[in-house]
Design a protein around this nucleic acid. Sequence first.
DNA 1: ATTCTATTGAAAATGGTTTTCATTATTAAT
DNA 2: ATTAATAATGAAAACCATTTTCAATAGAAT
Lengths: 154, 154
Amino acid sequence: MEKKSKMEWHGRFRGRGLRFTIPRRLILETLSSTIDHLSAEEIYIRVHRKYPNVGLTTVYRTLDLLERMGIISRFQFGDGRSRFELVQSSTKAGHHHHLVCTSCKQVIDYDDFVEEEVELLKKVEKALAKKHGFEINGHVIQFYGVCNNCQKQP
Amino acid sequence: MEKKSKMEWHGRFRGRGLRFTIPRRLILETLSSTIDHLSAEEIYIRVHRKYPNVGLTTVYRTLDLLERMGIISRFQFGDGRSRFELVQSSTKAGHHHHLVCTSCKQVIDYDDFVEEEVELLKKVEKALAKKHGFEINGHVIQFYGVCNNCQKQP
DNA sequence: ATTCTATTGAAAATGGTTTTCATTATTAAT
DNA sequence: ATTAATAATGAAAACCATTTTCAATAGAAT
């Protein structure tokens, strides 16, 4: 599994004439080994612990690249920074949507109704793609609210 | 309609011990008179044209306030700045969702399937609110893709 | 008109992200 | 393996949307 995805990744890079470097591998491994929604800086810190001569700049550049390659998704939850996770294709297990507390910024992944949501979204996506000539390759569903804990403390 | 909403707004401010000042009125009028998703700076420019001694700081502060009051919604389409529109309650006409071109950043409002979407979302919202103890007060549905025009030019 | 205090504008500070540029490292060819 | 070509990197500086600070101003109740 480790090996397999490593080779998969390597192939996706080489296929585009890109190099599968150490920083790129470490960033992908970091994202693979957590369910959290990490920010660029959080990824930098974790990568940096294992391999101290990786710079924050490279993390930003790599995240942009991975997003353009369709390997990771970028989310904005309202705390002023982008957060990233490995793409969970909406047709596969693991795909989820987000519930965000606008007060403490915590994010809960939910998948309770994702099948239903995705089913509808696929229909909408198809219609919108046709109507507006778009090539659609992603979606976001997010609920915003105030979590249990934040409701108590004013 | 102009007068009516002006009085309505005035009431909502006074009800919270807030003042309905000239900058606040102008910002609300600006948002009322467009269907665009304006950024803080775009709002500032428009307000500034009519009333040059309104500062950008005040625009930011007012937008934060209006969002907290539930009068406007903030969206992040990925171009690095927040964009705002008057709240269109999901139960009322005018409510729409967004289709975003990740290349040129254009945003298309669509309402083709919004009734269906909102119906499902209400069900999900209720379940999530109960399950996680959230008080949910908003949602985002966005599709991301590449528009007709951007597909042509590499 | 006066008082109280919410609100404001200007300037400075903040903080996430991007750019610049000289250096390094990966790959394909030798 | 070496080498040549160039993709990728790190550090520092630049960038830019947003926030903070603070003294001055202006709503609203009296």
